[in-house]
Amino acid sequence: MATMAAMRPLTDVTAHEREDIRLEFYRDHRGQPGFGSVAVRRDGDGGGFFIDVGATAPPPHDWESTYRGLPVRVSCVPHAVNAVAPAQHTA
């Protein structure tokens, strides 16, 4: 099954599958040191999809190179994003 997934064209991933992959990756990896976010993106104009992992730098965790047949790339982000900006107090 893993071999079939690896052979799959990276451009042939439906929106439903991308959603499924993103949620599964998130639930599999939350709690890993430095992990903050994940998205499934398309590489350039019409390129293949890849898994974009947002993690703190330096990477505290060795991420797998592929996941469900899609390459995994790690970019540097804060550990968690803030839903609201901290209030600014004026004197």
């Binding site: 993103r22 949620l23 939350r30 994940v38 998205a39 947002g54 968690a80 994003v81 803030n82």
Partner: peptide, 11 residues
């Protein structure tokens, strides 16, 4: 416009 699953800090 690409959806993300992410850790969010709420006050």
């Amino acid at each position: 416009p690409t959806p993300s699953s992410l850790l969010v800090r709420l006050p």
